[in-house]
Amino acid sequence: MKVKLVYFAWVRERIDKPEEEIDIPETVVTGRDLLNHLKTLGEEYEAALQYPEVIRLAINQEHVDHDEPIAGAREIGIFPPMTGG
């Protein structure tokens, strides 16, 4: 499955790109699986996703939990806890 990933704040800085389209293997079912898969793609991903439990996910621009299935997602946002306001 091809999906667009968009990164923000220190996740974006550590991966060193704002977005990319990647091909996800079929074994990746949930958001948690996706984070664990990304961690295997290189040092920069390992650095960004070292503590996956703090990372927030959005599918098609809506917040989701890590156990949410990602099938059919067009865009997945990956970012740290928010600090606006």
Binding site: F79, M82, T83, G84, G85
Partner: peptide
């Protein structure tokens, strides 16, 4: 808004360095 709206703040420090998120 503080906990759910997707905004992030990065500090730029007075000593010229870029601080942390």
């Amino acid at each position: 808004l503080k906990t759910a709206a997707p905004f992030w703040k990065k500090e730029h420090l007075a000593n010229g360095s870029t601080g942390s998120w």
